[in-house]
Design a protein around this nucleic acid. Structure first.
Lengths: 153, 153
DNA sequence: CCGTATCCATTCCGATACTG
DNA sequence: CAGTATCGGAATGGATACGG
């Protein structure tokens, strides 16, 4: 009870998002889920993480509605973890993490994975921010303001 | 020596990005930096975090080239921490975190901060992924592929 | 195969005290 | 103010062993 900045009443959406998926393992699990990983053992083998930590992360992400449990697609008696629509909406963030890493964290000729369009085989263009007229928007062109939404859809 | 997936040679850009800013505090520091926070004491007061943790995060982010030290703008003898161009490129990611939180983590009428265009006062449109022809791109329209860049700019 | 439980080492974090 | 040092509690993470 020392203080209350971390309570659910936090009004900054960035902070609230980080309360849901603020750590490295959770992001990697979501990344793998986008790549089609669904089974406990696949996550564990692919990420090389401890089984108890994986279990607790899967439980938390499920409770938060990012993942959901589905019956095994191969007829086995086990479960699978798949992204919900809410979880799929994290795609732009994961792609943003990927593109920033590609641009700033690899040497010129260094091998890395990248995202390509399935249909055409062409690389996915970089995400960028635009205003309502389609003009590129830089950080200094924006400000953060507190609002109380009234009648949004 | 159990395995080697976490070494710097990691070929997934998402994982490498998370090695640089994989934790909650670092993201909140970067968020504050975008909001114009520059001084040690401002970060500390605004985030309510322990001073030693703040110091270590600022040091790490500076070593990684996300922040850089600048002389105080008010003539005092102290330093300020400002985003480098590399750090500013995190803008789309931070905005992505914000927009996901706004959409999924707040009740309909609940008060929260949001991003608006400084010039027009209008809200910044949602980030989205498009292919090279401007068509919206969903997760299942893409695949991750390993490449060795040859002669990219 | 899943997933849980337990043990142990390491890190994280907050509070406080201390130095330019 | 800005930053460092230290201390104790809590959470994290890895390895292993154990039951559906």
């Amino acid at each position: 009870m020392s203080q209350q900045e971390n309570m659910p009443g936090e009004t900054c959406p960035v902070a609230r998002t980080l309360d849901v998926i603020g750590d490295r393992w959770s992001w990697l699990i979501v990344r793998d889920a986008f790549d089609g990983i669904r089974r406990f053992g696949e996550f564990q083998k692919n990420l090389g993480m401890a089984r108890n930590i994986l279990a607790s992360r899967l439980r938390a992400l499920t409770e938060q509605g990012v993942l959901e449990i589905a019956p095994a697609s191969d007829g086995s008696a086990y479960q699978e973890y798949v992204l919900t629509p809410k979880g799929e909406d994290l795609f732009t963030v994961v792609v943003g993490l990927r593109q920033w890493g590609e641009q700033h964290l690899f040497a010129r000729r260094e091998k890395h994975s990248t995202l390509i369009e399935r249909a055409s085989g062409k690389p996915v263009p970089r995400i960028s921010l635009h205003d309502q007229d389609g003009q590129a928007l830089r950080p200094q062109d924006t400000i953060v303001k507190k609002v109380t939404p009234q009648n949004r859809s």
